[in-house]
Amino acid sequence: MSKFRKKGKKSQPAVNTAALPDIVFMLLFFFMVTTVMRETSLKVVNKIPSATEVAKLEKKSLVSYIYIGKPIAALEDAFGSAPRIQLNDAFASKEDILLFVENEKLDRSEQERNKITWSLKVDKNTKMGIVTDVKQELRKADALKLNYSSKATDNIAN
């Protein structure tokens, strides 16, 4: 009996939590360094298609995005439901692409300008008409390296 009483009397020492802030700070710094803030807010519906032969885009800093799709539900009253082009944060017409390409090129250093990949994030229900127009504009602007953004999948037959 005395054995048990002895154990009950001596309470276990509390776990030392002094190192907890250090661990949390470590995680914090990791996320602070790796985080990339979303620079654009999407104004178009963007469900990208899937494909089997996708490749990863290596350098994020060398990718510029062009979004195409219907305006999102909240903006449908103001902009209608015809597919639109979104560059940076605003809707644009296809004539704006030339200027957009030039601005994106100016943002990069001189030797990187020809290595920019233009990632087309197009909603899969969009018709090809607007996409073809964009492609023609990109050709005129000498922006030839394209990426048809799509998700990886095993089977495309559906």
Binding site: K60, S119, N147
Partner: peptide, 9 residues
Amino acid sequence: TDTGLIRRL
């Protein structure tokens, strides 16, 4: 990371 079909015009 973005993935997709890379093509050249």
